[in-house]
Design a protein around this nucleic acid. Structure first.
Length: 593
DNA sequence: GCCGTTTTCGGCCCGACTGTTTTCAGTCG
């Protein structure tokens, strides 16, 4: 039973409760189950593990009832109480909820009137009914809602999961520059999960400051690349782009733009927590500003900047990356927000793949040492490290491998020797590293004699992802135990939208890294962003050091450092935690092996 | 069903947009 499956079950219970007659109690019970589902989905450890430790009720939103039901779930595989809740409801109902625009009430009505019962192919059956014109005949539906259902189903068919952050960035840049072409647009900014720099982005959200919202909306709906306009009201509008990406727009006058930024940046959970916090202090929040509850007639107070908005609540301004309802409001209240790192703090990159012909086991880089060193200088770095993949063990003899490693060492030494004469005098040192596969048994994929040619090794898992948690933990700790192994590369090996990360016993890994001063990598690669932000936060709490690397295979990739920095920020990391923010003096001391 | 710096009872975030209505329910973020 995965967290995702638990979340799905809780969401289904919430949906089922929505169909039950009853007053306010039912309404809030629904919300309670939805919150519990969110909590399950966002939990940083496996609920089953938490359950084994008897700590389910320590998770916020899990009270005694839900914790009790989950106890039964993990023990027996099902929950009797939930079965009675689901009694009489067609399984198809929960399938139809996947269609945007269809909620519980609508789904129930549709299953009943169309006679769709089974979960399998429920959406297919709904689509057929819609295309045959059967939906418009149901009371409460019309031709428009029937057409909407068809379009929505087409869209979920073409959907390929959430967008990667850099891709969403590109879309937003394009839409924002289109918006800025219109003279009534004072400001336009991408917000939502993009501004919070979440690894994957669902919808692209954009806010505009303007005194003429109608004209902005009209201009927005004429965006040339749209495939259709989803909605267009007085101050909000949504478009769909080719590929299914959705862009949401919200417009406000400049004097309340701060409130709008705040509202539209989210996250939803942060906003809910913030409004609850405000309510306790006699204030009510919305995207328009702050209202004192005792004085209904008092006009809403506007804010042109977010800083003022948070200040009015008695809080320090909270960086968008922290707005996930993960303790940031309490920290802001107590003045204990972390001093987050910034891209300007980065002083080196230790995971670069050059084109040096080392007959690698995986993909080679495209650019030379020299070019990459120069780029590092332009980026303001003081040090960098080349870590090509280890030479292939099947394609080379042991003797050949040692020869290749020796040659590479000599080439790097030459660069270091001639470096002083180049324009990049600020580069203090180029390190000679290697990214070495951790084999399934924990062994490292070069001969022991090869290590003497290296300054350091990044050790990474590139195969056998399916070992169980215990084996993987042992494997990685064994690999990291080599004295030259300093960094665990892309630790979970996840590829966003492609495969889940490996499961480890993180307590063990963190303890090992802390004790032996090993560093965990935050890999900036587009679909990795690994360590994931939630684990960065845990590593920070354990006092484990991390290094942000790009894993560049060509010059242009060296720019993606910013996404790794975003991951670190989302994990509450400060300069103390991230070793490549350290200046040369401090870093070189820490990096000597 | 959850939760606690006014509370272990009595609250629970706030508003926009749409379609099908004729004042609103449902959905979404």
């Amino acid at each position: 039973m995965t967290n995702q499956e638990v979340a799905q079950l809780l969401r289904a219970v919430a949906a089922a409760h929505q169909l039950k007659p009853g007053g306010a109690n039912t309404r809030f019970r629904v919300i309670a189950y939805q919150r519990a589902a969110d909590a399950a989905e966002h939990a940083t450890s496996e609920l089953k593990d938490v359950w084994e430790q008897g700590k389910l009720d320590t998770i916020p939103s899990f009270g005694s009832s839900i914790a009790g039901y989950l106890d039964e779930l993990f023990k027996t595989g099902s929950v009797r109480h939930f079965k009675t809740i689901f009694a009489g409801l067609p399984p198809a109902l929960f399938e139809l909820l996947q269609v945007p625009g269809i909620g519980v009430k609508t789904a129930f009505k549709l299953t009943k009137k169309l006679g769709i019962k089974d979960a399998s192919r429920a959406i297919e059956k709904l689509e057929r009914a819609a295309r045959e014109g059967k939906i418009r005949t149901i009371p409460g539906f019309g031709e428009d809602s029937e057409a909407d259902i068809i379009r929505s189903i087409e869209e979920i068919k073409g959907r390929t999961g959430r967008m990667l952050l850099p891709y969403a960035n590109q879309i937003a840049d394009d839409v924002v520059s289109w918006l800025r072409k219109h003279p009534v647009v004072v400001r336009a900014d991408p917000l939502g999960s993009l501004r919070r720099q979440v690894a994957t982005v669902g919808d692209v959200d954009i806010a505009v400051a303007s005194k003429k919202p109608q004209e902005v909306i009209e201009h927005f709906t004429k965006y040339p690349k749209k495939t259709r306009v989803l909605e267009a009201g007085g101050q909000t509008s949504s478009l769909v782009l080719p590929g299914g990406a959705q862009v949401d727009l919200m417009v406000q006058p400049p004097q309340s733009y701060g409130s709008l930024l705040q509202h539209f940046t989210g996250s939803k959970h942060h906003n809910i927590a913030l409004r609850e916090f405000a309510l306790k202090h006699g204030m009510s929040l919305s995207e328009y500003g702050i209202r004192k509850i005792k004085n209904q007639k008092l006009k809403i107070k506007n804010f042109s900047s977010e800083e003022e908005f948070y200040k009015e609540l008695g809080l320090a301004w909270i960086p968008p990356e922290l707005r996930e309802d993960a303790g940031e409001i309490e920290a802001a209240l107590e003045g204990k927000l972390p001093k987050l790192i910034d891209i300007d703090n980065i002083r080196g990159d230790l995971h670069l793949h050059s084109s040096f012909p080392i007959k690698t086991s995986h993909d080679e880089g495209m650019d030379s040492f020299q070019k990459m060193v120069e780029r590092a200088g332009e980026l303001g770095y003081e040090y960098l490290g080349f870590s090509e993949h280890n030479p292939s063990q099947s394609g080379n003899t042991k003797k050949q491998i040692l020869e290749l490693l020796k040659k590479k060492k000599e080439a790097i030494e030459k660069i270091n020797y001639s470096r002083g004469k180049s324009e990049n005098k600020r580069i203090k040192k180029v390190f000679n590293g290697l990214e070495i596969d951790i084999k399934p048994d924990g062994g490292l994929a070069i001969p022991e004699e090869g290590f003497e040619f290296l300054d350091y090794a990044i050790v990474s898992v590139h195969s056998s992802f399916r070992q169980n948690k215990k084996e993987q933990t042992k494997r990685v700790i064994t690999g990291l135990s080599h004295p030259k192994a300093k960094i665990l590369g892309h630790p979970t090996t996840r590829r966003l939208n492609r495969r889940e990360g490996i499961e480890f016993d993180w307590e063990q890994i963190f303890d090992f890294c802390k004790k032996h001063d090993k560093w965990l990598e935050i890999n900036s690669w587009f679909d990795r962003l690994d360590l994931p932000d939630t684990l960065v936060r845990e590593a920070v709490n354990h006092g484990v050091k991390m290094v942000i690397n790009t894993d560049s295979h060509q010059l242009e990739h060296m720019e993606i450092m910013r996404y790794g920095v975003s991951v670190a920020r989302r994990g509450w990391a400060t300069e103390t935690d991230i070793v490549n923010t350290w200046d040369w003096t401090k870093f070189s001391k820490a990096f000597s092996m």
